[in-house]
């Protein structure tokens, strides 16, 4: 297949933002909190990151600002759902809608802005290997950072004590509480970390992936990231694979069209959600699967007094 290496490269790039947001949401959900506000957090972080990049010209600073903004929004969400026990689904939806409107509002002066030229990245030696070079080794560093983040998260969740505590809080907050762990604070930390990751993903989209700011530009990627955590049955490595798969499907539709093969893109754009539903049906049919995969207290509020 001619151009396959470029398709692979584009898929990795397209999947990166999904993977970063996806593992952020995975941290949330592992701690038992479902944050449907991903789209909103990503939008606000996208405009904040873009504004930072416009004023400073420094994309890395833009990522940091994006993470801070995502974390701040997530912290508000966290306080609402963890201490005030508001409904997680409704609060998350509200955050998404708020983020959409708020980002459009504060982004007005930035709609006409543009960023300077971006350097092309090329890993010495590895980037020169035929096929593999252009496919894998000429990406923006964030693509590799995303892979690293996934590895770190997997190690954290399954190989460290803190990761065990985090999972315990998501599985059985009562038990964790009985053992003396501050369930609410741990949940808030997880929510903030998740928000920071969503913020990073959002600013990556507006600063590197599509370097511009336009209202609503995240265009459903936050929702795909949410679907992704379920699709991946809450496993970090599967989130990464799923992200590349969904990214690949997006790119494949254009790749095929460019070669005269017409698959309705509407069909392909529903695939991520369809496959998520299939996974949900599969794991829900089997009690052992649910126990093995789904955080048992996902979405349930925790009252330490009761």
């Amino acid at each position: 297949m001619e151009g396959l290496e470029l398709l692979i490269a584009a898929s990795l790039n397209a999947g990166t933002a999904l993977a970063i947001a996806g593992i952020g949401l995975l941290i949330n959900e592992r701690a038992g909190i479902m944050n449907l506000g991903a789209e909103g957090m990503m939008l606000v972080a996208a405009v904040a990151g873009f504004a930072t990049a416009v004023h400073t010209g420094n994309p890395w600073l833009a990522f940091v600002v994006g993470m801070l903004v995502g974390a701040a929004l997530a912290a508000c969400f966290g306080v609402l759902v963890i201490w005030l026990n508001t409904n997680q689904v409704a609060t998350g939806l509200a955050l998404s809608l708020f983020g959409g409107g708020f980002s459009a509002f504060i982004g007005i002066p930035y709609v006409q802005e543009k960023l300077g030229e971006q350097p092309q990245f090329h890993i010495p030696l590895l980037g020169d290997i035929p096929f593999l070079g252009p496919a894998l080794f000429r990406q923006h560093p964030m693509v590799y950072i995303a892979m690293l983040l996934v590895a770190v998260l997997a190690w954290f969740l399954y190989r460290t004590r803190a990761g065990l505590v985090l999972r315990a809080v998501g599985e059985s907050p009562e038990s964790a509480h009985a053992l003396g762990y501050p369930v609410r604070r741990i949940r808030l930390l997880a929510v903030v970390a998740g928000g920071a990751m969503c913020g990073l993903a959002g600013s990556y989209i507006s600063v590197i992936y599509t370097p511009l700011w336009i209202e609503g530009m995240i265009a459903g990627k936050g929702w795909i990231a949410l679907a992704l955590t379920t699709f991946a049955t809450w496993r970090p490595a599967r989130v990464l694979l799923g992200a590349y798969l969904f990214g690949g499907v997006t790119m494949l539709q254009f790749y095929l069209q460019g070669r005269g093969v017409h698959v309705p893109s509407q069909f392909l754009s529903m695939l991520p959600y369809l496959s998520t539903v299939v996974v949900l049906v599969l794991i829900s049919r089997n009690a052992a699967w649910i126990r093995a995969n789904m955080p048992a207290s996902l979405g349930k509020p925790f009252f330490p007094g009761s």
Partner: peptide, 18 residues
């Protein structure tokens, strides 16, 4: 109007030699 999708589509056209 979908900037990320437009980006992806443009990239695939360029990859195809346009």
């Amino acid at each position: 109007f979908d900037p990320p999708k437009e980006t992806e589509a443009a990239q695939s056209l360029i990859n195809g030699g346009a």
